Simulated assay, not measured.
Amino acid sequence: MFKKIALSTTFLIALFSLVACGQSSESKDKDNDLRTLTDAQDHKVDIPEKPKRIIASYLEDYLVALDEKPVAQWTVGEGKIQNYLQDELKGTPTINYDLPYEDVLKFEPDLLLIGSNGSLEGGKYKEYSKIAPTYVVKNGDNVTWRDQLEDVGKVLGKEEQAKDVEKDYDQLIEKTKKDLKDKIKGKSAVVLWVTNNSAFMVADTRSSGQLLYQELGFEVPQLTKEISKKATADFSQVSLESLSQLDADYIFLVNSDSGAAMFKDPLWSNIPAVKNKHLYEFDGNSSWLYNGPIAYTKMVENIQDVLK
């Protein structure tokens, strides 16, 4: 009798062990489920269901907006980083913008998000894909931050959260247009970036230009229209002589060179918006040179602060 009970107990223990192992295995598999997505370069990429070690150089804005934190953040030159994101990314190690293979390996990513086709020239995609699943996010001249946010949201399985981020932003835009109606209607504005004693103007459909003209409804100055026709990047260089003819009501200046000689030139001092004290200055650490929902939100908040 005792022998039968002992055998039965042994059998039950073995059975429970098998079930437990099965559940453990099933749970592990579930955590590592893969989804196959097609990226902007038509690669079929097996994406982990819940990536935990993401590198998304220059796409950190989108990660932060979707409550994700990368294992490394973009940098270029002498430690230049996206300062406007540092409340969320403080302490996150940096990785150079061109993503050296050795550095990528060191961070042991389980997902690489690439934000530019140009950064993959020279067979880089093949090398990166040996390290981790590598997904090229929508990019190019006609791709907006909304397009990129939705694409990143799809990769992370956070499509609905991406839509919520857009909805919150749209509400901010509508409130700003309403609150600043008298300051916007019929008024023209321009975004200038000064660096190395040279001035650059944003194009009318790119970056902060898209925000000013398409979303908030500022008028486009004639000089901006002319610059935009030939623009091949977000910002195009413009001479001080041309700026002296600038008829904008407001200038939003991103100043990365506060000691620039051009600011002491009479041509600068006589620009109507400068003379009328409608020059609003932001330093090079602000979000005005970047793209993404957080960058744009901070730009709108800057505009609210100076025009209220």
Rank of each mutant, 00 (worst) to 15 (best):
residue 1 M to P: 11
residue 18 L to F: 13
residue 22 G to H: 09
residue 26 E to C: 02
residue 28 K to P: 00
residue 33 D to Q: 14
residue 40 A to G: 04
residue 47 I to N: 04
residue 48 P to E: 08
residue 52 K to D: 11
residue 53 R to L: 03
residue 60 E to I: 11
residue 62 Y to V: 04
residue 62 Y to C: 01
residue 64 V to P: 04
residue 84 Y to P: 05
residue 86 Q to C: 00
residue 86 Q to A: 01
residue 89 L to H: 05
residue 93 P to M: 08
residue 97 Y to W: 14
residue 99 L to A: 07
residue 100 P to V: 06
residue 104 V to E: 02
residue 104 V to M: 02
residue 105 L to D: 04
residue 107 F to D: 03
residue 113 L to C: 07
residue 113 L to P: 00
residue 116 S to C: 03
residue 118 G to T: 02
residue 127 E to I: 10
residue 132 A to G: 02
residue 134 T to C: 06
residue 144 T to C: 09
residue 149 L to V: 09
residue 157 G to M: 09
residue 161 Q to P: 00
residue 166 E to H: 10
residue 166 E to V: 13
residue 169 Y to P: 00
residue 169 Y to R: 09
residue 181 K to C: 00
residue 183 K to N: 11
residue 188 S to D: 10
residue 191 V to Q: 04
residue 196 N to M: 06
residue 207 S to V: 07
residue 209 G to V: 12
residue 213 Y to K: 11
residue 215 E to T: 08
residue 218 F to S: 06
residue 222 Q to W: 00
residue 225 K to C: 03
residue 225 K to T: 10
residue 226 E to D: 15
residue 236 S to L: 07
residue 246 L to A: 07
residue 255 N to C: 05
residue 265 D to F: 01
residue 275 K to A: 14
residue 279 L to G: 12
residue 279 L to R: 10
residue 283 D to N: 15
residue 290 Y to D: 08
residue 296 Y to Q: 14
residue 297 T to P: 05
residue 299 M to E: 15
